[in-house]
Every structure is written in C-alpha cells, then in structure tokens.
C-alpha cells in the first residue's frame, strides 16, 4: 500500500505505532444498539469516564457519555463493519490520528497539566487533553509506565519535534 504514509516514519527518538485502526462510535449507552456492539466486540463499552476496556486485540476508550473510540491493530479492516448499527454513528477515523508511544512520565509532564502520578492516572485510563498546546488522547497502556498519544497526523511532526526537544531537557536534569 504505497499510498499509506506515516507522518513520523523514520523519526529519531520517538516510537510511533502507525496505522492503528480507529473507529469512533456514538450510541446511546443504555440502548440495544450499545449492547449489540459490546457483544460483538467481546467487551463492554466502558461507562466510567476516561477509562479503557480491553477486548482481545482491541481497546475501547470512553471519550464521552455517548462516545467511544475503538482501537484495533493495523489491518483490522473488518472493524467498522463489525460495529455497524442502524441507530449508532460508526465512523472509521483511522486516518485521523497516529499514535506515539512514550515511556517516560517525566517527559510528558513537561507539557501536560494533568496529574500523571500513579495515584491519579494509571494503566487503563485515558484522557483527552492538551500536550504542548496540541490536542491529544492520552492513554496509559501499562504501569511501567507506557503512554500512547493519539495525535492528529497534521500535528504529529510538531509534537514529535517537541517531545524530542523535551527529551534533551529531561536527560540534562537527570
């Protein structure tokens, strides 16, 4: 697929996970459509704000009271059709964002105003916020810690530049 171009391909110092399949789902949380969607996904749609539920190789991020983002691996092309429901909005937004993996809390804290200490933010949590003035979905996948930043493709180079720059300042201060 030569048309697929990752904005951070070959970027030094930043781990990118390109081409994840992302599907935005908007549905009434208590309705039958939501129940059918979660049954097909094999995991419940999370109802706790800013939480993530794992459903096999896929992850369901709660973005709002009636909005979820289902993230699957690269090549999960059947996902939009799997979730399709007459009374739900199911939109393939894979091309909207790319994913940057960051393994340092210190680094993120240079540009993020959220409290990322484990007492407040841990694996299985997500948040929509600003990092370095860029709108991101911040998602902690592991307590090591490992964070994923889901950022719009057009902002990815800027954010990667900023993170590379901030990496320099964290290492110099220990």
């Amino acid at each position: 697929m030569s048309l697929r171009r990752s904005p951070l391909a070959g970027y030094p110092g930043i781990t990118e996970i390109p081409f994840l399949t992302m599907v935005n789902v908007r549905v009434r949380p208590t309705g039958d459509a939501a129940a059918r969607i979660s049954e097909r996904l094999g995991g419940p749609l999370p109802v706790v704000p800013n939480s993530v539920v794992d459903a096999g190789s896929r992850h369901i991020l709660m973005l709002g009271p009636d909005e979820w983002l289902v993230v699957g691996p690269d090549g999960d092309t059947g996902l939009p059709d799997l979730l399709r429901e007459p009374s739900a909005s199911v939109v393939d937004v894979s091309a909207n964002r790319t994913t940057i993996e960051v393994r340092s809390r210190d680094l993120l804290e240079h540009g993020c105003t959220l409290d990322l200490h484990p007492r407040a933010f841990h694996a299985g949590r997500c948040a929509q916020t600003m990092i370095a003035r860029t709108q991101v979905i911040l998602w902690q996948t592991s307590d090591e810690p490992v964070y994923r930043l889901l950022v719009r493709g057009s902002f990815a180079t800027y954010l990667a530049d900023w993170l590379s720059d901030a990496t320099g300042s964290t290492s110099s201060t220990g």
Binding site: P49, N50, P65, T113, T129
Partner: peptide, 10 residues
C-alpha cells in the same frame, strides 16, 4: 462533569 478538573485553556 466528565473529565474532572482541567485547566481553563481547555
């Protein structure tokens, strides 16, 4: 009410 306490710029 959904996200908790956030800064005014958001």
């Amino acid at each position: 009410p959904w996200c908790g306490e956030r800064e005014e710029t958001e």
